[in-house]
């Protein structure tokens, strides 16, 4: 009896830092944001409980359209990242050996040694009208005057895909690495074409990695701020910019809090839907990630 209690206490003490960490840094702020999101301004320094901030999101087309646009572009970014990352991950997991593999992974990691802001500024230097790409296009004669490649949705997608690539490659390479080479050979041996083997063996095997990578990339993208702000055009408002605007330029914290909660809920709902559609469970996916 005593020993069981003692071991329980030990377990609790061991877990205490983690619980405190989670509680103080994740749960508590969210609870506060949640409470804040239900307060409505009545008069200066007077607030009342209400659902107005949430209603505002659904009744003002500007806000839900911005969210829909953000979600749609994030899904697009996730899909593009997946398509780009898959061959790279396949190469890292199945072809590259030893040093080459380490170097390739390092190359994927390299851009993350500088901050997201610097990376984005790098893209701006490349894409701006007086930038490297524009200059190169003119030099080879593909354009006869400076080309503006910045400040449009394409630039935003480019920047976001670039930022998400690593987070897709790692879980994918992980998943693909565990695929026994003989299983792939058996796929060919029994008459499967490359496409059949990819579709029926490699992709189903990598599914947990695909889902894990997609969730990470989607969440990172939907919650990104700097990339869409800096690369995006005068037309592209990201939902996080709305939250920023509410908190910082409009001083409307309750509205910003409501938007924050809605971002959390709606993006979680999209992830849940994605899991349902692909028939994956969160548990197996987390194992992979």
């Amino acid at each position: 009896m005593m020993t069981r209690q003692a071991s329980r206490l030990t377990l609790f003490l061991l877990l205490a830092p983690a619980i405190l960490w989670l509680g103080l840094l994740i749960v508590l702020p969210h609870v506060e944001i949640l409470v804040l999101s239900f307060s409505e301004r009545v008069a200066p320094r007077v607030y009342a409980f209400g659902l107005g901030n949430y209603l505002e999101f659904f009744t003002e087309p500007l806000y839900w359209r911005t969210f829909a646009r953000t979600a749609f572009m994030s899904i697009l970014v996730t899909a593009l990242t997946l398509v780009l990352a898959f061959p790279i991950a396949l190469y890292i997991a199945r072809v590259a050996q030893g040093r080459v593999k380490a170097i390739l992974l390092l190359l994927c990691l390299l851009p993350f040694w500088v901050s997201e802001l610097v990376r984005t500024l790098g893209w701006m230097m490349l894409l701006r009208e007086t930038g490297v790409v524009s200059y190169a296009l003119r030099a080879v004669g593909l354009a006869d005057q400076p080309v503006e490649l910045l400040y449009n949705d394409g630039a935003v997608i480019l920047g976001l895909v670039y930022g998400g690539l690593l987070f897709m490659i790692v879980p994918l390479a992980n998943a693909l690495e565990s695929l026994e080479p003989a299983v792939v050979e058996a796929g060919f041996d029994l008459g499967g074409s490359r496409w059949t083997v990819l579709r029926r063996i490699v992709i189903p095997h990598a599914m947990p990695g695909i889902v894990a990578g997609s969730i990470i990339v989607f969440m990172l993208t939907v919650g990104n701020f700097a990339t869409p702000v800096l690369l995006g055009g005068k037309n592209g408002l990201w939902f996080t910019e709305q939250i920023y605007a509410q908190f910082i330029t409009r001083f409307n914290w309750p509205q910003g809090a409501a938007f924050g909660m809605l971002l959390l809920l709606l993006s979680s709902a999209i992830v849940w839907l994605g899991l349902r559609l692909t028939g994956q469970s969160l548990g197996s996916t987390l194992k992979q990630a």
Binding site: P44, L62, T66, N235, Q242, A245, T249, R250, F251, N252
Partner: peptide
């Protein structure tokens, strides 16, 4: 005055979001 920025904010949001 208080409240002015609320009005302006929405106009500016629309300006940035609309395409």
């Amino acid at each position: 005055p208080a409240g002015i920025e609320e009005i302006e904010g929405k106009i500016l949001d629309r300006l940035k979001a609309g395409s």
